[in-house]
Structure formats: structure tokens, C-alpha cells
Simulated assay, not measured.
Amino acid sequence: MQNFKKIVILLTLVFAFSCVSKKEIVYFQNDEIEQNLVSNSYKTVLKPDDLLQITITALDLEAAKPFNLPAVSYLTTTDRATGTPQQQSYLVDNNGEIDFPVLGKIKIGGLTRTEAIEFLRKKLDPDYIKNPTINIRIANYKVTVLGDVNKPGTYTIPNERITILEAIGLAGDLKITGKRNNVFVMREVEGKKIKYEIDLRSNKIFTSPVYYLQQNDFVYIEPNKASSQDAAYNKNRAFYISVGSIILSLLTFLTR
């Protein structure tokens, strides 16, 4: 009986130490916020596979019309347009180029939105349009949150500005078993995949280069060791139950 009590105490201690502590789950508990390094400025950089909506307006509507082609579908039998005309979208190819009306192939990949607008303005003014107003929007701006969160998935961001905390909020926050100190962000920069690691428990997140996410960023939350072990256990639940039953029977027999 004495051996049985010792085993129960040992198992209780193991369980207690395996529980998640407060230090592992509370956000922003470490380090001071370095206010001089915090920046609210954010620049959207145009990249391959971005689907752009570009609107050109001017006082001379006729001059701007060729640069705002509608996207329509046609009936094969009558060659007539059907449906409601929508704004044409332009896909940035692997070379960072789009095929734009009248101007043809132009390279805007790698430019910020402001730089791309200024680039187009110089192309159009004064040869085609005088004092054009140009708006560029990424129609397929999205981020993906995977791993130990409540709602993993890909999220479309209409305003093209999102922080990593907002993205985690969209994904329903981390599960209790998610590692707060091991959050990874995968980002493509000039054709190369770059991996960033951040700690949600630290206030240094506010000065991280991935605090503001960019289009097509991947956020991955790693499960903690206990969660991984539990997943492995669940796969072999029947085996462990059988082994546990045998051990319990032996202990009962030995302590009689």
C-alpha cells in the first residue's frame, strides 16, 4: 500500500509541473516599451502575385477613359457584353510587371504604393492626361495564421494594414497550449523567404519589423511540448489504456 501511495504522489507532482504557468501565457509582461523605436508608419510594397485595382481620374474624363477599362464577359453567340461591368484588375507577374492599357508592360513590383502612384503619374502627365488622380489598391491582400490557434486560416484584409496582434485576433487568439515565446512569421523579400521569431510576452513586439504584417505573410504558432505529447498520446490512446490497465492490476496485486 505504501508503494501505491508513493506512485500516486509522484503522478500528482508530474501533473502539477506540467500545467501551464502564468509566465508562459500572459502577453506583454516582459521588457519596457522603447517609445523612441515605436513607429506608426507603414508602407505597402507591391509584390509578384498582387492583384491591383488601379483607378485613373482627371478633369478630362475622356482622356482618362482608356486607362479604366471595364472587365466584362461576352456571350459567344452574339459577341455582346453581359453582366455588370467591373473594374479591371492587373496581376503583378514574376518580373514585377503589369500590362497596363496604352502604356503596355510597366514594372512596379518592389515599389511602395506612393512610389507606384508617382511612377504612373510621370508616365501619364502630360502626354496622356493632365494632372491625373491615381489610386492603387491590392484586391487580394491577405495574411495566413496557422498552428495552435482557435481559428486557423487565410484572412483577406480590405484596408491593407494589419498588425500581428490583429491577425492573431482574427484567428481567435492562441490556444492555451500555444507557445507565446515562439511565434514565427514567414515573409518573402525580393524572392527570398525570411523567417522572423517574436515573443508575445515581450513589449519588444511593438518595435519588431513584423509588427505590421505585409501581404501574403504567414504566421505560425507552435504548440507547447505538453500539447505535442498529448497529440502523440491520442494517436496511441488504446495502447496506453491497455498498458495502464496492466500496470494498475500489477500494483493492486503487489500491494495486497
Results as ranks from 00 to 15, higher is better:
126 P>C: 11
65 K>I: 01
46 L>Y: 04
188 E>K: 15
242 S>P: 00
144 T>M: 13
82 T>R: 09
120 L>N: 13
157 I>C: 03
105 K>D: 03
14 V>R: 01
76 T>S: 15
105 K>V: 03
81 A>H: 13
225 K>L: 12
168 I>Y: 05
185 V>K: 00
128 Y>Q: 11
180 R>L: 15
2 Q>N: 12
138 I>Q: 01
173 D>L: 03
22 K>L: 05
147 G>Y: 05
17 F>E: 00
220 Y>R: 05
221 I>G: 10
181 N>I: 03
188 E>C: 13
256 R>Y: 11
183 V>G: 04
121 R>M: 14
231 A>P: 03
109 G>C: 11
98 I>Q: 04
210 V>L: 07
88 Q>K: 11
128 Y>R: 11
193 K>D: 12
22 K>Y: 04
167 A>W: 02
96 G>S: 08
98 I>D: 02
214 Q>R: 12
90 Y>T: 04
247 I>T: 10
156 T>Q: 15
208 S>E: 02
133 T>S: 15
46 L>P: 01
240 Y>A: 13
185 V>A: 01
88 Q>R: 10
101 P>M: 11
32 E>R: 06
145 V>M: 04
151 K>N: 12
34 E>C: 09
147 G>L: 08
99 D>P: 12
214 Q>D: 05
222 E>M: 12
114 T>I: 02
168 I>N: 07
9 I>H: 02
193 K>F: 12
19 C>T: 14
37 L>V: 05
128 Y>W: 13
2 Q>V: 15
5 K>G: 06
126 P>H: 08
92 V>F: 03
232 A>G: 13
182 N>G: 10
180 R>M: 15
77 T>A: 12
67 F>M: 07
227 S>I: 00
148 D>K: 08
21 S>M: 08
171 A>H: 06
9 I>R: 03
96 G>A: 11
6 K>A: 11
205 I>W: 05
45 V>A: 05
58 A>Y: 02
166 E>G: 06
73 S>R: 03
99 D>G: 09
252 T>Q: 06
216 N>Y: 10
113 R>M: 07
155 Y>L: 05
15 F>P: 00
70 P>D: 06
155 Y>Q: 00
211 Y>Q: 03
171 A>Q: 08
28 F>H: 15
27 Y>Q: 13
106 I>N: 08
123 K>D: 15
249 S>H: 10
1 M>D: 10
200 L>F: 01
178 G>F: 07
206 F>K: 06
236 N>P: 00
165 L>C: 03
11 L>S: 09
199 D>P: 01
78 T>N: 08
7 I>Q: 09
78 T>I: 06
88 Q>H: 09
71 A>Y: 01
21 S>E: 11
163 T>N: 14
1 M>C: 10
61 L>S: 12
111 L>G: 12
115 E>K: 00
75 L>E: 15
38 V>W: 11
83 G>R: 14
201 R>H: 04
211 Y>K: 01
157 I>F: 03
134 I>M: 08
139 A>P: 00
141 Y>T: 01
122 K>G: 14
52 L>E: 06
208 S>F: 02
95 N>M: 10
70 P>A: 03
226 A>I: 13
57 T>V: 01
43 K>L: 13
256 R>E: 03
143 V>G: 07
216 N>S: 13
201 R>Y: 05
